[in-house]
Computed example of a mutant assay.
Amino acid sequence: MKKSLMGFVVLSMVLLSVFFTGSAAWAIKNVCPDCNFLQEDMELTACPNCGKIINKCLICGTVNPIKNDNCSECSASLAESRVMRTIDKDVREHLRLGESDRAKIEVELGQIKDMVEKGELTPELASREVELLTKMDWWSKANLKAIEFATKFPEATQTALVKKCRVKSLRQLGFLAMEDDEYAIANEYLKTALELEPNDKKTANLLKVSQNELKKE
């Protein structure tokens, strides 16, 4: 408990110090965090005034042109790297900043996005994207990507996994709609989920509640 509290205090102090002492310069990709020199040539990788490397990825170490928002090698967010570099390396490592499961998933999603844009979409990549979106609780995106998967790869071996993710996403979307008293919308989500997985008791129970609430309106 004491360690957790101490970690929280240290993290709070670090973030406050970054916010108040670093100015907004580090958040702007073409401003040097050391000398605040404004870069005009977005193809550069280092500040022409002081030589500071501007856009080095903290995940894989690749030095990127200033114009890049994501690492050209691993697709990690360079905006996050720019902020992280303002925090002492020992503090970063102690608090394991940028190493959360969600941070790692975001990096992998970025990599998948890059490969898709290059025309390298495969059933493995598409199903992995659906799985990761579901893990991130991005239910709407996961549902849409699952629909795309079913359209593009109807015979793929990953179909069962994608269907499972879509059922979960639809169930959660239905639950959220119920939370907002949108029972008609909830019914549609939940009915679709049950069509995909008729034996899903959680979905069936939610649908029953939603239908009863809709009757009261």
Rank of each mutant, 00 (worst) to 15 (best):
V10N: 00
C74L: 04
M178E: 13
N30K: 13
K208C: 04
G98F: 07
K208D: 09
I28T: 05
V167P: 01
W138L: 06
M1K: 14
N199R: 13
N205K: 14
K215I: 11
S4C: 04
L44S: 09
T203A: 11
V31I: 15
K168F: 10
P123K: 09
S140N: 07
E40F: 12
D69F: 13
V167F: 05
S81R: 10
F37L: 00
E99M: 15
D90I: 12
Q111T: 10
L5N: 01
M178A: 10
T62L: 06
T45S: 13
E195S: 11
S17R: 12
N68Y: 07
Q211L: 10
V107N: 05
C35H: 09
I87V: 15
E131T: 11
N68I: 00
E213F: 02
L5Y: 01
K67Y: 05
S169P: 00
T21Q: 10
A76K: 01
K168S: 09
T21N: 12
D200G: 09
M84T: 01
R128C: 03
L206H: 12
A177C: 04
Y189G: 01
L15W: 05
T134E: 01
V130D: 02
G174H: 03
F19N: 12
P48D: 07
D114C: 06
N68T: 01
L170K: 04
N55S: 15
N70C: 08
R166Y: 00
M136V: 03
E129T: 08
M178T: 06
E148L: 14
V130N: 03
I105A: 06
N68G: 00
S77V: 11
L58G: 08
I105F: 04
E43M: 10
L176G: 00
K163V: 07
F8C: 03
D101R: 14
V31M: 08
L214Y: 08
W139H: 08
K118Y: 09
L16G: 12
D181S: 14
L132R: 02
E148M: 10
L176Q: 14
L214W: 08
N205T: 11
L44I: 02
T203M: 02
S17M: 13
W138K: 06
L190P: 01
I28R: 12
L173K: 03
E213S: 12
V107M: 07
C47E: 10
K215F: 09
D137G: 01
K201G: 01
I59Q: 13
V91K: 10
E80F: 15
N205S: 13
A193M: 05
S77P: 04
S140Y: 09
P65C: 13
I59A: 14
V209G: 00
D41P: 04
G119I: 03
L173Y: 07
V18N: 00
T134Y: 07
N55G: 05
N187S: 14
K52N: 08
D114K: 14
L170G: 06
D137T: 09
M42E: 10
K145M: 11
